[in-house]
Design a protein around this nucleic acid. Structure first.
Lengths: 155, 155
DNA sequence: ATGAGTCAGTTTCGATTTTCAACCAACTAC
DNA sequence: GTAGTTGGTTGAAAATCGAAACTGACTCAT
């Protein structure tokens, strides 16, 4: 969307790709199984030219792929790639925040653990210690993908 | 931002509030400790009138608060409220996705577990079973905040 | 084989947003 | 008094968006 020399932040890089008003909603629909142009269009109320544009961007970015579901006439549907499915935690996090702070704690839809039916939380997880990590136990440091002037950083 | 009758989805409700091109970047700056109008403005390169507008929206939504840091002249800085800080997992999730899929696995900044220095992952977590939950073990169901026609839903 | 319908777009154009630059107000420091 | 800083506001040009009309490829019913 924008063309900046190479931003030193993965959040910004990500938002440059999918951070506009519609794209995350389109992705939500794809996660929900709404995969066809016209279905997405009527579900979101997005203008068709914009939907064309956004889906094109997502396909170019390899987040979504266009697969034919019939010949004669050839019709396609849009499916998440592995890269696209990897956005699941991001959407889940936004959803849980909205449940708590916008929907007043009353989730319109709940995501639960299959085995026990408990509603899921999303937590930072340490793969070494195998424990959830509280925000107070998180530090940041410059990583191998170059670094920015380090400040008090707590995300 | 938009005024829709009462959308039945926490993702959409959330994105209506913070899902524009700049707001999440502003919040990222606040998490990083960049809290003053002029600092944010130059860091992001956002137009000042838009920054005024977006900060106002965030303050109205109680995501950010404006606190004076000096008198004479009174100057304010913008701080995350508890509601704002609760967006941390969302930003973290977007960051981790960007690390992997946009920055080619080379994180510009790493968030690590204080105690052991391991880079953090963000995982759905079952508070009952006390285990991380894989995407395949997640189901969805209508919650108390009203419900939408249920489809194959996997977020 | 004509006519209506569906799906996935493209085109056009007026309305809205964003950007960019200039200006302003309050105060400090010199 | 002059310059500088911070946190804005204002207005005009440029970019983007939204709504509706139009297209093309095909099906199905008559």
């Amino acid at each position: 969307m924008r063309t900046q020399p190479a931003v030193e932040c993965s959040i910004q890089r990500t938002l440059d790709l999918i951070g506009d008003r519609w794209t995350l909603l389109i992705l939500r629909d794809l996660f929900r199984g709404v995969r066809r142009f016209s279905r997405i269009q009527e579900d979101l109320g997005i203008a068709k030219n914009l939907l064309t544009d956004r889906l094109g961007t997502l396909v170019d970015a390899d987040i979504v792929e266009k697969v034919p579901y019939q010949d004669r006439p050839v019709r396609h549907e849009y499916r998440l790639t592995e890269k696209g499915r990897a956005l699941s935690p991001s959407l889940l996090a936004l959803m849980r925040w909205g449940d708590r702070y916008v929907s007043g704690g009353l989730a319109p839809t709940e995501l639960v653990h299959d085995e026990c039916g408990t509603r899921l939380e999303l937590q930072p997880w340490c793969t070494t210690c195998n424990v959830p990590v509280a925000p107070t136990d998180i530090s940041s440091r410059p990583g191998p993908g170059r670094h920015i002037g380090t400040e008090e950083t707590r995300v």
